[in-house]
Design a protein around this nucleic acid. Sequence first.
DNA 1: AGCCTAATTGCAATGGAATTGCAACAAGAC
DNA 2: GTCTTGTTGCAATTCCATTGCAATTAGGCT
Lengths: 143, 143
Amino acid sequence: MTQDDESLELVKQAIREAGLRATPARIAVLQLLRRSSSPLTHSEVTEQLARSGVDRVTVFRNLNDLVEAGLLRRAELRDHVWRFEAINLDSGHGSAHPHFLCVDCGSVSCLGDVVLTASSQRATAKVGKAIEILIHGHCNDCR
Amino acid sequence: MTQDDESLELVKQAIREAGLRATPARIAVLQLLRRSSSPLTHSEVTEQLARSGVDRVTVFRNLNDLVEAGLLRRAELRDHVWRFEAINLDSGHGSAHPHFLCVDCGSVSCLGDVVLTASSQRATAKVGKAIEILIHGHCNDCR
DNA sequence: AGCCTAATTGCAATGGAATTGCAACAAGAC
DNA sequence: GTCTTGTTGCAATTCCATTGCAATTAGGCT
């Protein structure tokens, strides 16, 4: 079994486990993003998959479906265009933890041990119940 | 001189110092945002100023002009909508501060006094330079 | 106060991302 | 194999943001 066959099976399995059908278009989208070293925009994904005859709208729906299924993450830089990134399951996504989003390259890093000060937690609670903390900035690779 | 006259003069002065003409539409936009306690979207600003007969496009251009002039800040809070916030050098909103975005109703609050713990700041610095902290959650009105 | 010019406005038209409706099609359970 | 239901492709549409252009006006100048 080649490396590609293996990754193909992993991708199929992940899609099915998420409750979606493993269609060629869906597989291609997830595989492309898992292999990409940086988040891709919808049009970048479309461009790649147009050769395989996949429709723009299908790419769009699949990206959204995969986000909803928890296999992709939607990131937004400052150009008002959605970017999509595969979520890597190995790297401890068990408990909720803050993320750092680089507004230059779009990469997302996990900040496992970042927390608010006690007084900040109280201030936040006054406004509502926090479910996610996201820090925007310029990552060290982009400077 | 009333409070309003005073703030009107301050707004006019700020616009002129930025190298722009103090037109009624421009004044209204900046005044509205300086009085708002949270960032407003373009459509929220438009809605407010439509009564005064200001065109959508004019609002748009003025928001952009004022951002370019350094009087407003454009924030992207992950819901794919631009929000604009006055940069007021004397009072809190000048420096970067965290925002709380309700994922239910989309309302935004400013959290002036929320900060990370010292160790969290160090952890963040390892990844990069933070420019905005964003907290998502359910606001108290939506529960 | 009145004039002049460049900045600004309003309106209509345009651009482009994202979405929807629907008929045709295919994945996967039986 | 067949059947059901999720999925796809295409065209049309919605929504947000921007642009071109003629009409208007702010603010410097006399």
